[in-house]
Design a protein around this nucleic acid. Sequence first.
DNA 1: GGTAGACCTGGACGC
DNA 2: GCGTCCAGGTCTACC
Length: 328
Amino acid sequence: MPGFTLHVPADYSLPRDFCSYGYFLLFPNHWSVREQALRRPLRLSERVVGVRVTQPRGEGAALRVETSHTLSRDERDEAHRQLARMLRLDESEASIAVFHRLDPRWARTGQGRVSRSPTLFEDVVKTVTSCNVTWPGTVQMNRRLCEVLGTPLPEGGAWGEGVRTFPDAAKLARARPQTLRARCRVGYRDQRLVELARLFRTPPAKGGLDVARLEDPATPDEAVREVLLGLPGVGPYAAANIMQLLGRYAHLPLDTESVRHGRSVLGYRGTTAQVMKRLKAHYAPFGAQAFRSYWLELWTFYESKHGPAWTWERDSTGKMFTAALLSK
DNA sequence: GGTAGACCTGGACGC
DNA sequence: GCGTCCAGGTCTACC
């Protein structure tokens, strides 16, 4: 099978670092527990290809990327860029060490990288489809968005028949809101998702979203937050979540899960607003790394209920993701 | 600036 | 099998 090698930081572990955030369970991602492999289709400039990523020699060793088709040099570079974004290969050992110095609880396990999507667009849509809905609803919306609007992987082969990409902004921008509502079951998010896609499609000079500016580490957090809050379907929670997906960890995406964590694990009492205030104070000492401390506490709780995330099957444990269900 | 209520879907529950 | 209730964050109208 054609493919290439992907070099990683010396402390990188594919099962631990890819299965580190709920989106690893969402279509079109597929983590094979048996193979300890990530499979998904990637949309390259000219065509769609399937990738299967493994780390045969364990932590720190290079990743093996098998592809459904032989790639040109440019296509390999493109696939490389997308996978590096997903797997957070941009987070060097040094940057993880900075986090571990601030919060040594995770130094032993080596945790610190939180996985994401190959593109900011997919991360934003996944975030909007995770708002005001229980986790099985998010799983369902992402599955249907791929099934209805995704591009099929030609001659799927080992990737399975009917495997489709995540829809790109162009496709979603052309979709009818009624189609999204009726076939993708996104409910009232229909028009917001179309508008969001149009903003990604429109050049910044014509009022569209300046993705490069959002992804530029030199852009101040507050400027990024202000832009995100202006996007349809994005409020304070979603903005903070998209910021962590952009590698900006100072803001906490606080939601009902956070409140549950505050009450049941940290022992906080009082109203939702009071618990949220205490949560902010609790993570304040971690400063620019606050999100990672917060998230790993939550993730550790989930894993204490159902074992390491790399043993979770997408169609069983993966559907029970939120603690409200896990704790039953 | 703060707050109440509407927005949808799917799962749980009672009958 | 059907009806009702509830969880979930954003948005708008209103004070």
